[in-house]
Amino acid sequence: MVSASGTSLLLAVPAAVVGAACMGLASAAQARATKEVEVSRILDPGLLRGLAHRPLWLIGMVATGAGLALQLVALAFAPLLVVQPLLITSLVFANVIYSRLERRPLDRVMVAGSFICIAGLAAFLVVARPSGDSVGFSGTTKPLPLAFALATVTVVALVVAVLFHGSVRVLGLAVATGILYGVTAGLMKAVAGEAREGLAEPFQNWTLYLVCIIGPLGFLLSQNTFQQGQFLTPALAVITALDPLVGVGIGVWWMGETANTTTWALAGEAVAGAVILVGIMLLASRAEHLARAQAGLDSGVPRTAPETSEGTV
């Protein structure tokens, strides 16, 4: 016989995975569409006006709505610390779908880097052993330290994105996007908890309105990130890794959820984080290699050590 908590997971886990597939489709479609419009300034709403006329981008928007709805369903039945990390599988879905949109084979190194990121996060979950099912902010936590840290990193990332160009700019945009996405997910968890008390309850609290500000800002930044980056996978890896990790921090620091914090657990979590970084670095270096190879083709210079399986995913 399945327990009540088991029943909740049977609902939450499929919702989270299907939601990740929808978000992967959204990322791939939106990234492809951003290449079809004029490059805009960071946080310029004009980018969205241009994209609104692209059918592929509209498909991505529908997929985004479906993904967010499924994420909300999952968060209503399981802890933030369980649901958020499952969403990193959107990276694999985005890889496959984007390669099909570009009509290119999957690049083996990019796929390997994606799986390394997912493996690192899976290891983090096993070691951290997240638990708890909070429905709102805990009065026993101290939210200011984490809030200050997240705000500081976001501002620094945006400054870097403004001052620099190329891959450094994309990295800054991706970091800021991932943080805003993670904060949005944490706030959505609180909104889901408020909705349990009545459909009108979220409208009487500040959380929903903050979601309506931070969520769109994160989305606009994501479109800037896709447009500025030559390749989808490295930037998306940063976003999809930071999103659940920030969600984990919010679950523990703001909502009173728990995780294993013994000395050995913290060491294991640090190793898992290092694995995620290795995956991201592999993706970034591969993107640089493919960019140089493409530049050589464009200039008429043959590539060195060509590989038939290379694709720009």
Rank of each mutant, 00 (worst) to 15 (best):
I214F: 04
I179F: 08
L199I: 11
L199R: 14
I214T: 06
E201P: 00
G178K: 08
A195S: 13
Q204L: 14
E201K: 13
C212R: 11
G172Q: 10
I214Y: 08
A200K: 12
G182F: 05
A200G: 10
F203C: 09
T207A: 11
N205V: 01
I179S: 02
I179A: 05
E197W: 06
R169D: 09
Y209F: 15
L187G: 00
L199H: 10
L173V: 07
G172I: 10
G182M: 06
A195F: 12
A185V: 15
T184C: 09
G182W: 04
T177A: 10
G172E: 12
G198A: 04
C212D: 10
G172S: 07
R196F: 11
G178T: 07
R196K: 15
A185I: 14
P202E: 08
N205A: 13
V191S: 00
V170M: 09
A174T: 09
G186S: 09
T177H: 07
I213V: 15
V183N: 06
A176L: 10
G186M: 08
I213Y: 05
V211D: 10
V191P: 00
L210Y: 07
E194C: 03
G193M: 04
L171K: 11
G182C: 08
G198P: 00
A195W: 13
L180P: 01
Y209H: 14
L208A: 10
P202H: 04
G172Y: 09
G186V: 10
I213T: 12
T184E: 12
I214G: 01
I213G: 08
V183I: 15
E201Y: 03
W206S: 13
G172M: 13
A174M: 12
V191E: 05
T177N: 08
G186E: 09
G198E: 02
L208C: 02
T177P: 01
P202S: 06
A200T: 13
G215W: 05
Q204E: 14
G215D: 08
K189I: 05
T184N: 14
L210W: 11
L208K: 03
L199A: 14
V211W: 06
A192P: 00
Y181Q: 15
G193R: 05
C212W: 15
A195T: 12
G186H: 10
